Computed example of a mutant assay.
Amino acid sequence: MNLLLTGSTSGIGWETLKALLPHFDQLFLPVRNLEKAQKMIQSLPERQKIQLIPMDLSSMHSVKKGAQLILKSTDQIDLLINNAGGMYPGGKLTEEKLDLTFTTNHLGHFLLTLELLPALKKGQAKIINVSSEAHRIATSLNEDWGLRKAGNTINAYGKVKLYNILFSKELKSKFETDGIQAYALHPGAVKTAFGSETSFIAKAIIRATQLFFISPKAGAQTSIFLALTPKGKLKNGGYYDKKKPKNPSSIASDPKAATDLWNYSLDVLRELNLISI
C-alpha cells in the first residue's frame, strides 16, 4: 500500500510518519525543504521506502509539478494525509497573489488531491484532512473564500480550518461511489513551532496557553487511528476528535457551503491556468 503525507518533517506530521512507516510499502513525502527532509529521514528504519517530492503547498505551480512527479512513480495511492498547515499574518500574499493562509492550509491540498484523483480512485483511498477546533471561530463566511479581505490572523486561521472539514464532506459527496472516504480531525492543541511566523498578538496567545498543550506524539494519535482503522468502522465525511466522531460547527455541516468552497477553489485554479475542468 502507498501513503502520501504532507507536513511530514515537523510536529505531528513527523510523529505520524514514524508510526505509519512500517505499515506501507511506499511513502511519498512532499517537502518544501529537501535538504532538511533528507537529513531527517536518515534516522528512520526502512527509509528506502520513502520518496521525497519537492513541493511548496503555497505555490500552485509547485503543487502541480510535484503531483506530476508522484504520478510518474505510482498509479495508486491508498492513503492521503493532508497534514501540513500554518498560521500566518493576515493579508500575506504568495507569488501568485493569493493569501498565504488560504493556499497553505486549503488550496494547495485541494489541488494536490484533485491532481491525484486517478491514483486515489484506484486505491479506493482514505483522505485525511487535519483540521482544528479553531474552525468554530468562523461563525460566518461572508463569501470571502480566498481571504482577500481577512486581515485578522486568528479569524483567517479559523476559516481555513473550517475549509478542511467542508472539503472532507464534499469529497465524500463526490467520490464515495468510487470507494474514496474522507475525514477531518482535530489533533488537539499541540506544542510545536506552530504560529512562529504569525503576528505578535497571535504568538502571545499561543505562548500564554502552551502550558496546556499536548506533545506532537499525542497530537498525531487521531491521524494514526484514522489511517489504520478499517473503513467500515469509520464515518465517511466525519469530523474526529480524540479518535471519536464529533459534531463540528453548524457551518461545517452545511452542504451548500462545501459545494461553494469547492467551486470557488476550482475557479481560482482555472484563473491560474492549472486546470481545465
Rank of each mutant, 00 (worst) to 15 (best):
G146E: 10
L21T: 05
L147G: 01
A84S: 10
N273Y: 03
D25S: 13
K172Y: 14
L34G: 11
A258Y: 08
P255G: 12
M55P: 02
L261N: 04
K72Y: 09
I70Q: 06
G90T: 11
L266E: 12
M87I: 12
F110A: 01
I275S: 00
A189K: 11
T104K: 00
G232P: 04
N152D: 15
E176H: 15
A19I: 07
R207W: 10
L5Q: 01
I41A: 02
A182D: 12
D78T: 00
K246M: 04
E95H: 04
L27R: 00
L269M: 05
A204K: 14
T9P: 02
N105I: 07
D241N: 14
Q210A: 13
G7P: 04
S249W: 14
I137E: 12
T139M: 15
I214M: 12
Q48E: 15
L117S: 08
G219T: 02
I201E: 13
A257H: 09
L228G: 07
K217W: 08
E15W: 06
K39Q: 15
P30S: 08
S199I: 10
K244T: 15
S43D: 15
I214W: 09
A84N: 03
A193L: 10
L71M: 13
K242F: 13
Y264D: 06
I214H: 11
A150N: 08
L117E: 05
A258F: 09
N33T: 13
A184W: 05
Q76H: 13
Y240F: 11
E197P: 02
P230T: 13
I127Y: 01
A202Q: 09
T209Q: 11
D144R: 11
G86E: 06
L226V: 05
R136P: 01
A189R: 11
T259M: 15
G237E: 14
L228D: 12
Q68F: 06
D56E: 12
L147C: 02
L98R: 00
T177I: 14
I206C: 06
L98A: 01
Y240L: 06
M1D: 00
Q210G: 10
